[in-house]
Amino acid sequence: MKDAKIIRLTVNGREREVGALPNETLLESLRGLGYFEVKSGCEKGDCGACAVLLDGEAVDSCLLLTWTVEGASITTVSGLGSVDEPHPLHKAFIDRGAAQCGYCTPGLIIAAKSMFDNDTREPSEDDMRLALSGNLCRCTGYTKVFDAIDEAARIMRERG
């Protein structure tokens, strides 16, 4: 057995420490710390259920070794807003009925947030399809998901 190491991370703005073995993934570490909104799906980088923002870019936390992200800033879907102050994406997903079983929803919202921050704030449907190409949803058929992201984009642009 290899030795665990203490790894420091900032998660949703809060300094956290986690004891991790060399083969521990960021997904395992985050769930170990209680961030259960980060879901484990395929563990192959196909489904996007485990997506988080790593220093502002959406990544699959199942494909990253915790030791290699020491000192990074991680944002989960819960870090984008709260029940009292939801992010426009949170609100639009609810208003548009874009969540059904909900398992893929955290990853979908993180992927959309990364698109807004890194790629475009005025996404076309093609842009949205490209941004969500690594997220699988088996309930919604994606139509309401695209409606929700479109609405959130409009609200965010209006806010400036």
Partner: peptide, 29 residues
């Protein structure tokens, strides 16, 4: 590759392959 301002003009083949590469989270990594 996708976010570079000039690369799409210089090497559209490479940028097209990057666009169709896996999903966003994998492309970011």
């Amino acid at each position: 590759l996708l976010r570079h301002p000039e690369l799409g003009q210089i090497a559209p083949s490479l940028v097209e392959s990057a666009r169709l590469f896996a999903g966003q989270m994998v492309r970011n990594t």
